[in-house]
């Protein structure tokens, strides 16, 4: 990615681990966010660019195991870090229980918020395996959805929690 482009001055190389693989991006302009690097340089478009100011959660990723907004991480800050994006949540082409639950519950409409919600819900269920509705609402308050009114998203998280409990 990024071939054939002549980026502006102050360029650097970033090496980090993304979804378990060590990757590098070259010619990165210092002002590029991790979100931009993931999308435009590493071809991982799953993290979405809805607000680019940390207000919508559409670019939620794990950075060293912590849920963060990739738009608020400067590309260079990812150097040497471990990142898991929505593309790394499922395995071997199979959906994770959280992803399955979103499909099943009808929690996806336009879906632009979905990748961020998948990562945020995944993080919630790691921390609290059987959250109450109130806990779900507080945990997902940083993920804006404009289509669904959230009802089916909350259903999906409950559904995923039940699915994960059964598989344990």
């Amino acid at each position: 990615m990024g071939m054939g482009r002549t980026p502006p001055v102050g360029l650097m190389r970033i090496t980090c681990t993304v979804n378990g693989k060590q990757v590098s991006a070259d010619d990165v302009w210092a002002g590029e966010s991790l979100l931009y690097v993931l999308r435009e340089r590493l071809g991982l478009f799953g993290s979405k660019n809805a607000c680019e100011q940390g207000e919508c959660g559409s670019c939620s990723v794990y950075l060293d195991g912590k849920l963060v907004c990739a738009c608020l991480v400067l590309g260079g800050q990812a150097e040497g870090r471990e990142i898991v994006t929505v593309e790394g949540i499922g395995s071997d082409g199979a959906l994770h229980a959280v992803q399955e639950a979103f499909v099943e519950a009808g929690a996806v409409q336009c879906g632009f918020c979905t990748p961020g919600l998948i990562v945020a819900a995944h993080d919630l269920l790691n921390r609290i395996p059987e959250p109450s509705t109130v806990q779900i609402r507080e945990a997902l308050a940083g993920n804006i959805c404009r289509c669904t009114g959230y009802a089916k998203i909350i259903d999906a998280v409950h559904l995923a929690a039940r699915g994960l409990a059964q598989s344990r």
């Binding site: 999308r39 478009f45 799953g46 593309e87 979103f102 499909v103 996806v108």
Partner: peptide, 26 residues
């Protein structure tokens, strides 16, 4: 029938290409 979205799985995986994801070489 409550038919599921055919694109929902792709969307949950981050594999559904949106207009802001469009790109071609050059």
């Amino acid at each position: 029938e409550p038919v599921r979205r055919p694109d929902a799985a792709l969307k949950t995986r981050g594999d559904f290409p949106y207009s802001s994801d469009l790109q071609v070489d050059g």
